[in-house]
């Protein structure tokens, strides 16, 4: 690592030809940059605005009228409908706890594995990593019937454990892959020093590696959280009682045999995005703070 850095520094020295100071062109450049960044930002934030308008419209407004159009008379009753007819109040709690348990389990297990693969010395680490990577490649619909059969034999159908396990299994490979990239980048000096000092592996893992990887852990938590929160194929297939269903199934409540209530779907989507938006904002701050904490230790 150190050697590499020195080499990098050398290279940059040789290649540096840039002038200092901000010229007029520099300013125009910055202006353009901000303009582009701003336009992209509008593209990215527009969906929320659109979804909000969508949630206040009736079917006939949703289809046929311009998507820019404001709702003629805002239909707040879509929200009331989503809350009561869609049983959202019931599903909401399920979504939260199932997501949290699955995310914690996935990220913890993935961190253990990544640590063992990148930091510990054993013969089969590449093989095991390969095994996890293959898990990325199975299309979810191929797995439905075998998984249903399996959970059914264990009597786990209509039991939240089935979806928690399924979420964990299907997100583990992705989570490990993301963690892996970071573990390679992270300097090992601190851990090596800790080993010299006679620390146990567990202590190194929990007290040094985990804190140092907070940014990537936050990243994987965000990604896992979003995936689990929005998942519905597993829930629909493995859960049949209302008491265990999650928010995404609430959307199904508005899809009829011939008629779909799009306004209420919009309201359900809007309600379901709020908690995840808040969690996301809090967590994405952790990505920055985590580094600060990590670098103090480093």
């Amino acid at each position: 690592m150190n050697k590499e850095n020195i080499e990098l520094n050398k290279q940059t020295k040789i290649n540096v030809t840039a002038k200092k100071g901000i010229s007029l062109w520099g300013r125009i450049g910055y202006g353009l940059l901000y303009l582009i960044l701003g336009i992209i930002a509008i593209f990215q934030i527009y969906p929320l605005v659109w979804l909000f308008m969508f949630s206040l419209k009736s079917n006939s407004e949703v289809f046929g009228k311009s998507p820019f159009a404001l709702p003629e008379s805002p239909r707040w009753e879509n929200y009331a409908k989503a809350w009561t007819d869609g049983s959202i109040n019931l599903y909401f709690f399920n979504s939260v706890w199932i997501t949290v348990v699955a995310v914690v389990l996935t990220v913890l297990l993935a961190s253990f594995v990544t640590f063992a693969i990148t930091r510990m010395n054993w013969k089969y680490n590449k093989l095991v990593l390969g095994l996890f990577m293959v898990g990325l490649m199975i299309p979810i619909h191929s797995a439905l019937i075998p998984l249903f059969d399996f959970f059914n034999k264990l009597n786990l159908i209509d039991n939240p454990i089935s979806i928690i396990l399924a979420y964990t299994a299907f997100n583990l490979p992705l989570t490990i892959m993301i963690l892996l990239g970071f573990y390679y980048t992270l300097p090992r000096e601190v851990e090596e020093a800790a080993v010299m000092d006679g620390c146990s592996v567990h202590r190194i893992f929990f007290q040094i590696t985990l804190p140092m990887t907070t940014p990537v852990i936050s990243t994987t938590v965000i990604i896992n959280m979003i995936y689990n929160w929005n998942e519905f194929i597993f829930v629909n297939t493995f859960i049949s009682s209302d008491k265990y269903k999650t928010l995404t199934v609430g959307i199904q409540n508005f899809i009829g045999q011939y008629l779909t209530d799009w306004g209420a779907i919009g309201a359900t989507l809007m309600i379901s995005i709020i908690p995840i938006l808040i969690a996301f904002i809090l967590l994405s701050n952790r990505i920055v703070e985590g580094i600060a904490a990590g670098s103090v230790k480093g």
Partner: peptide, 13 residues
Amino acid sequence: ALLVISVLIYFPI
């Protein structure tokens, strides 16, 4: 973790 994926991913594969 290996147990989880071998049962829930390798079995379906």
